[in-house]
């Protein structure tokens, strides 16, 4: 398995992941949970941190071109900043902009609440189809494949390392 063919000069967005399985030359990692606030000391109580073991297991990903790693080891993985932006725009912006645009168009043309709602759902469906096409193109170019950056020093605080 080869790594993505992307420019090394582009700045990387980094994140910490843990090695959970080794299958031949493929290393499987699990991302460490992040909270959308991450500024509060009571994260464990409010439920914002994590999302459950199942949710994390669903996010396991292979890491091509990684050096010899052991299970349980924490590593920093990176993806070009532009790739992360393109990924989030594809997943979120395209469907929602088309949905709202369709709703506004329908309302401007005299449609009521029901017509507007139908137009919005239609716009959302079209947006999701377009998102799927763009995502497969990004994936084909290797833009959605993270790369190994470095090992996290043992005992290190990942949040400070990044």
């Amino acid at each position: 398995m080869t790594g993505p063919d992307l420019s090394i000069d582009e700045p990387l967005l980094e994140s910490v992941a843990r090695v959970v399985a080794l299958e031949g030359e493929t290393v499987w990692l699990e991302p460490e949970p992040k909270a959308s606030c991450s500024g509060c000391m009571s994260l464990a109580m409010c439920g914002a941190k994590g999302g459950g073991v199942r949710a994390l297991a669903a996010r396991r990903f292979p890491l091509p071109g990684a050096p010899a790693l052991k299970i349980g080891e924490r590593v920093v993985v990176g993806l070009p900043e532009g790739s992360v932006l393109r990924a989030s725009a594809t997943a979120y912006a395209v469907p929602i902009v088309l949905m709202v645009g369709a709703g506004i168009t329908a309302q401007t043309n005299g449609a009521g609440d029901l017509g507007g709602a139908l137009a919005m759902f239609g716009g959302l469906a079209v947006g999701l189809i377009i998102a799927r096409l763009i995502a497969s193109r990004l994936s084909g170019r290797g833009e959605l494949t993270p790369r190994f950056v470095r090992r996290v020093a043992s005992g290190g605080d990942c949040s400070r390392n990044l």
Partner: peptide
């Protein structure tokens, strides 16, 4: 829509938005 997109966003963005 895209499992690859889902995994990539899961690595770099918070789980619960």
């Amino acid at each position: 829509v895209s499992p690859a997109l889902f995994r990539t966003l899961g690595i770099y963005l918070p789980l619960i938005t």
